[in-house]
């Protein structure tokens, strides 16, 4: 029997915030929170799956986020004409090229990282922490060597700039696009995990790897696939976040990792549905508290995590015995 209460948390938080602000502010902040949550979900879902399936704590995950952001910069730089063109087709083609390149390069980097680093530390948490933190430092320095330390500007495509009116609130077009893309990715992941054999094996592997192997599945190969997909999603999320911020720095991934870990812990280690709910909760809380009590904004997500763990110590949707 699945617990019902965690599903109610999102609407409860939205309803609690409603009487504390004007209607248009509530609409704008809710859309902003959902957009931020969707981008966080893209960045965190890979980490959740990797931990869930193979019990690997990958602190280098932030490196894939940063890499995705810089690949987007590099792809969009020669496409400035398309980015600023009056044609929405050219705008979206430039954006699609940047997203696709970010996902492919980050996925390829993930493939190499798994083969060179991760494969040697399966089952050893302390070594995983040390070597993946080391991997993150190396990745950051490589990125600095290639792209430098100066923040690089990144323009949104012309069609996604500006805002539109919804219920008296001005909604940024880009945020709406982030919500749509996030929902599409979530729907795709949900379909793969719940409607395909590979997804079934992944879900089973998150719960009991050994038994999956005893049923004849080569889970190590599956893990490589999941690691690559997780890295690609992190790169995609990094590219999305960078365009949202309109600037890229070498610290973009490391800065997001705190929120990414909070999302994964709140959701329940290894749970994609939990990761999705956790990301939206973090996005909404950050926006509501940032508006209502800006001085508390910095600690609001830590407080959210503490409260949720006091209520459900294994996260909102714990998987198996984790």
């Amino acid at each position: 029997m699945k617990p019902v209460a965690p599903y109610l948390l999102l609407p409860v938080i939205m309803l609690l915030a409603f009487p504390l602000m004007s209607g248009p502010s509530w609409i704008a902040l809710t859309v902003a929170g959902l957009a931020m949550g969707m981008m966080l979900f893209l960045m965190a879902s890979g980490l959740a799956l990797v931990f869930g399936l193979m019990d690997v704590l990958n602190f280098a995950h932030g490196g894939f986020i940063t890499l995705g952001a810089y690949i987007a910069v590099s792809v969009l730089a020669p496409l400035t004409g398309w980015v600023n063109a009056g044609s929405w087709e050219l705008n979206l083609m430039a954006r699609a090229a940047a997203m696709l390149a970010a996902a492919i390069v980050s996925g390829a980097a993930g493939l190499a990282f798994e083969a060179i680093v991760i494969r040697r530390v399966y089952g050893a948490h302390l070594q995983q922490v040390l070597i993946t933190v080391g991997g993150l430092i190396v990745a950051d320095q490589l990125i600095v060597a290639i792209w430098g330390t100066q923040p690089l500007p990144l323009q949104k495509p012309a069609v996604l700039r500006g805002s539109f009116q919804l219920g008296g609130a001005a909604i940024e077009t880009y945020r709406m696009a982030a919500v749509v893309l996030g929902l599409l990715v979530y729907a795709g992941m949900h379909f793969i995990l719940n409607r395909t054999r590979i997804g079934l094996v992944v879900r089973a592997g998150v719960e009991n790897r050994e038994m999956v192997e005893a049923l004849g599945y080569r889970i190590t190969r599956l893990f490589v696939g999941v690691f690559v997909a997780g890295s690609a999603l992190a790169g995609l999320g990094g590219a999305m976040w960078a365009q949202y911020q309109e600037t890229v720095t070498p610290a973009i991934g490391a800065e997001m990792m705190i929120l990414v870990f909070i999302v994964v812990i709140i959701g329940g280690l290894g749970s994609i549905g939990g990761c999705f709910t956790g990301a939206l909760l973090v996005g909404l809380t950050a926006n509501y508290i940032g508006f209502l009590a800006p001085k508390l904004a910095l600690g609001s997500n830590i407080a959210l995590m503490v409260l949720i763990l006091l209520w459900r110590p294994r996260g909102l949707f714990p998987v198996g015995g984790r």
Partner: peptide, 28 residues
């Protein structure tokens, strides 16, 4: 041999802990 290869030879294993995936349905 690795466990998946052994299983693929036609050996089914039911461990002491049963190895049921509790989050999946009976059908799954």
């Amino acid at each position: 041999m690795a466990t998946p290869e052994i299983a693929r030879l036609g050996i089914a294993y039911v461990p002491e802990t049963m190895g049921i995936f509790t989050q999946l349905t009976v059908r799954e």
